[in-house]
């Protein structure tokens, strides 16, 4: 409930260069699809009141392949990814993830860059990016740097981004091996994940899980056990590295059990 007039203040940028200049000169939260922003604003959990609307930056609304790397522009929406032949060919697990984000109304507005920057541990595209060793491209006025996706988060909704930086793209190298994605929520549609898993089975296994830790995580010990040992040994490793919590959406016990089941299923279904 909004009871007093606020100081919410919005600027709109029309180009990346303009957006970066604005961010250099004053701290603002960039927003695009804004599908999670208003939820936080309305619940009073979002302290940010100065925004930069970047929805109009069409130059970031692209999906391309450059030197065998799939480049998802930050403003590529879930709807765009679902419709993209390049994503279908190279990263089908992202299509699975995108189709399960909210409903079509949210898929029309939610962006890959927003999912990354928002940093919710339950973000459905994030395990996909973690499992395929993606790289986040950050720009600030006059500078650009690349950060491994698995090193992008430093804590619950905390990232390595500086306030003057903008996520402009995420780069996905060619993925060799079978891709697998599964989301478990309260219901099939319109639910936030209790556990969400993305896996790649190539020479070894790459497994990333969302909603069970402060950030999306890779199950590195489980991956090692799968590469060299049995599924049962991998389950022992998994129990050692997964420590979810009880929260509003689920319990630690449930999440731990479901994570085990999903990893088992990943391994048997991709055999």
């Amino acid at each position: 409930m909004k009871t007093a007039l606020s100081t919410l203040e919005m600027r709109r940028a029309t180009s990346v260069a303009e957006a970066l200049e604005i961010l250099r000169d004053e701290p603002r939260m960039p927003i695009a699809g804004a599908t999670d922003v208003y939820v936080g604003l309305n619940f009073g959990t979002l302290p940010e009141l100065r925004y930069l609307d970047i929805w109009a930056l069409d130059e970031l609304r692209t999906i391309t392949v450059n030197e065998d790397v799939l480049v998802l522009g930050a403003l590529a929406t879930y709807t765009m990814m679902v419709a993209s032949a390049l994503v279908q060919e190279r990263l089908p697990m992202m299509i699975e993830a995108a189709r399960q984000v909210g409903g079509p109304q949210i898929q029309n507005r939610g962006t890959i860059g927003g999912n990354i920057a928002n940093g919710s541990p339950a973000g459905d595209s994030l395990p996909v990016l973690a499992a395929c060793d993606a790289v986040v491209v950050l720009q600030s006025a006059g500078a650009e740097r690349r950060v491994k996706f698995t090193e992008f988060y430093t804590g619950y909704r905390k990232t390595v981004m500086r306030r003057d930086e903008l996520v402009v793209a995420v780069e996905v190298p060619r993925v060799s091996g079978r891709q697998w994605f599964r989301k478990v929520g309260t219901r099939a549609a319109q639910a936030i994940s209790k556990v969400v898993v993305a896996g790649v089975r190539g020479e070894g296994a790459r497994i990333a899980v969302g909603s069970i830790a402060p950030t999306v995580i890779r199950l590195t010990a489980t991956e090692r056990a799968l590469a060299t040992g049995s599924l049962d040994e991998a389950m022992v490793a998994l129990r050692g590295e997964v420590n979810p919590i009880d929260d509003i959406r689920s319990t630690a016990d449930y999440r731990k059990r479901v994570t085990e089941n999903l990893v088992r299923r990943f391994w048997t279904e991709t055999a």
Binding site: T35, Y38, N42, P104, Q105, N108, Q190
Partner: peptide, 27 residues
Amino acid sequence: CDHGQCGACTVHVNGERVNSCLRLALM
């Protein structure tokens, strides 16, 4: 629901459906 879960507020923006409860009018 006022947070993007029910779809009762669906409108079209430039021909595309969106949840109007998740849009700031200013945008």
